[in-house]
Design a protein around this nucleic acid. Structure first.
Lengths: 337, 337
DNA sequence: CTGAAAGCGCTTACAG
DNA sequence: CTGAAAGCGCTTACAG
């Protein structure tokens, strides 16, 4: 962990070289306008000559500030989250923050550990996609942090916190309604983790749609799974073993849907013909899958941007009021249904 | 940028509370074993009571060390890089480093700026996927950094540096040979940026394969493009306008190949039947695309892991010898060819 | 517009 | 095994 043998060039050395005081040099690195242009040029020249690199860490320590933000997500290989990450990252970079990245893989321990690490690194704010079933203890801890926190995607019901997400219930409702309108009566709901708030919301939408159409909810058609492509494949294999198979499948996410489509094909059926499939999220791959996937866009990238902007606002305004930003999902009909 | 109103609990306060000196408390946070178990427990208890959070930034400043690593990639939405990111991130997290993330989107200015930001944040090491056409100036600067640097994916010919990548020439060779063996004589090479070392290497492989098979290289069949799906789509549209169309297409990357397949379909042709298509990288989507994409695996995730391990080794061993890790690519034949 | 001194929260020798 | 003092590289009042 030891850094360079060579010592860093310090601001003091620069000041000496330029023949000014350290305070003057300090004002210059921070672009304070009340320094004469002549001195400024002289000092900037010394910096170049000595190869000076500003030490933001020391500066932040002294001034009790921070130029970093922590971002904790579940899994980068899940395109939903990588899209979310892009949204957050780009928005924060634009306003001059550097992001520290952490991934939980849905482990509560990892999440606790990452929160600590972020705090130890003095992040000025935190964007967290909480692990499903985040403990009361963690929740309390989050509430007591003295840096701004924005929750995203999943919610923690126990605490009040700024939050960015989509109306998952509404999204599920529109997806299932679409299937009902196509004449389906046996519609499965596949994949996802039951403990997750995002699952619960989708389940509500699923049930509501069925009930409103006078269709009874058949528990054997609701199968949860790991939120991965493999999870989708597995959930589907259970469906295939059913004596009364569904004619349409509403999937927890696009990732799950890709697994389901793969399984459907392996069983010799054609997605969109023999069985209708709808995903959730509208990740970029949904458009190029074959057949292109009907899905509900939950705007992952935009969620990231919104979360970043909200956090930034919170970090710069002390009188920030708590906000919940709920994006309205959009049904995108393609050929898989 | 101002942090919390509440002041951080300091180690000194903890020490006072526990009735020991600050040095003792410091030894305890760093798990120094020469403190009696009794004192240790007493101090740990005080930390819990006061809600102490270790200030790694202050610690790193004082001890001239770092627990962060900078990672600069081109574009997170390109699955190749997000896979690379996962590899780096997981490997570094495991050994206790936190990663600062930056994306260049192939802009030299952004790259220069990101390198500065990373240095200002006192990263202990840097993994960089250089922008194509990185200037001599930047290259020199990289060479003179006094922190360990590992280059990945693309190379900068001007400088000597640790490097991790795949044998792109070899990969292209095997892809094109595969197409030749299938009887193709008119094989296009589509997409990618000519300035990039990874393009040049693939081009070498492409030419070599053709020449060895006694096929003349037809320049009209080599079309570069932005390294995106849209780029692939565009490059294909140029191909479609040709009077003598190719019967097979070797694509710079899977991402390009997805664009090409999309375009092929839009033109009413069937990929893998009317025209054979081969990609490069083997990103996860290659397996689920339709038809599944024949491609050359360049092991993006493993490249990331290797780069991280190499960097870590370099950071902890002062007598590290410069290394080049070149992964051997692997042709994966699926149904698109 | 510029300077001398103190301090952010930690660790590092050096004594005991 | 524990303590008092100095210092990492910067910024912050406060004087001038």
């Amino acid at each position: 962990m030891k850094q360079s043998k060579k010592r860093r060039v310090t601001l003091q050395q620069v000041a000496e070289h330029a023949g000014v005081s350290t305070s003057t040099a300090s004002l210059i690195v921070r672009n304070n306008p009340r320094i004469s242009e002549a001195t400024r040029q002289k000092v900037l020249q010394s910096m170049r000559e000595l190869g000076y690199v500003y030490d933001r860490v020391a500066a932040n320590l002294r001034s009790q500030s921070s130029t970093t933000v922590g971002l904790i997500i579940t899994d980068i290989s899940n395109t939903f989250f990588s899209e979310f990450l892009i949204g957050v990252h780009d928005a924060l970079e634009e306003v001059g923050y550097t992001v520290l990245l952490g991934t939980t893989f849905d482990s509560i321990d990892k999440q606790d550990h990452l929160i600590s690490t972020m705090l130890e690194h003095r992040v000025g704010g935190l964007i967290l996609c909480p692990v499903s079933g985040t403990a009361q203890e963690t929740a309390l801890r989050l509430e007591q942090l003295d840096i701004p926190v924005v929750l995203a995607v999943r919610e923690i019901p126990e605490i009040k916190c700024d939050y960015v997400g989509a109306d998952y219930r509404e999204g599920a409702l529109s997806a299932v309604n679409h299937l009902i309108q196509k004449g389906h009566k046996r519609i499965a709901f596949l994949g996802g983790i039951r403990e997750s708030s995002t699952w619960v919301k989708r389940m509500e939408g699923y049930q509501t749609a069925l009930l409103e159409a006078g269709i009874e909810v058949d528990d054997s058609l609701v199968i949860d799974s790991a939120p991965t492509r493999e999870g989708g494949l597995e959930a589907l294999s259970k469906i295939l073993r059913l004596s009364k198979r569904p004619t349409a499948i509403f999937c927890f996410s696009d990732l799950i849907a890709f697994g389901v489509m793969q399984g459907v094909r392996q069983a010799g059926l054609i997605p969109g013909e023999d069985v209708d499939i709808v995903g959730f999220d509208n990740v970029p791959e949904a458009e190029i899958s074959h057949p292109p996937l009907t899905t509900v866009s939950s705007f992952p990238r935009r969620s990231g941007t919104e979360a970043a902007n909200l956090l930034h606002h919170k970090m710069s305004n002390t009188n920030h009021k708590q906000q919940r930003i709920i994006l309205k999902p959009e049904l995108i009909i393609r050929e898989s249904s």
